[in-house]
């Protein structure tokens, strides 16, 4: 699975993307977030307050927890500020 980070989330974790093989126990978004948080450092920091993190699974916005069973790409980013 591809994981993407944008804007200040990207600068905090230090990478724009990574490919991850999920352990069998991780099947939902919140489980993935918990797994990433365990790494500590920037990862722990970006997921401290989920209110300021937006999530897209396969380029579609999701709110709250979601299944990752068919997901190939998960993106984490701050609220958008274009326009």
């Amino acid at each position: 699975m591809k994981i993407l980070y944008f804007a200040w989330l990207r600068t905090k974790v230090g990478i724009a993307e990574e490919t991850l093989t999920l352990p069998e126990t991780v099947t939902s978004l919140y489980e993935l977030i918990a797994l990433l948080k365990e790494r500590g450092g920037g990862y722990e920091e970006i997921f401290q307050d989920l209110d300021v993190v937006r999530v897209a699974i396969d380029q579609e916005y999701v709110t709250g927890d979601a299944s990752l069973e068919k997901a190939t790409e998960v993106a984490f980013f701050p609220p958008v500020t274009g326009g």
């Binding site: 200040w8 897209a56 993106a75 980013f77 958008v80 500020t81 274009g82 326009g83």
Partner: peptide, 27 residues
């Protein structure tokens, strides 16, 4: 179109000031 674009299209602005430091724009 502008109102929806501002809150939905995945763009992020990074502003650089005259001192050379830069900050992500807040929503």
């Amino acid at each position: 179109l502008m109102d929806w674009l501002k809150t939905k299209a995945p763009f992020w602005k990074l502003e650089a000031d005259t001192s050379g430091s830069s900050d992500w724009v807040k929503e």
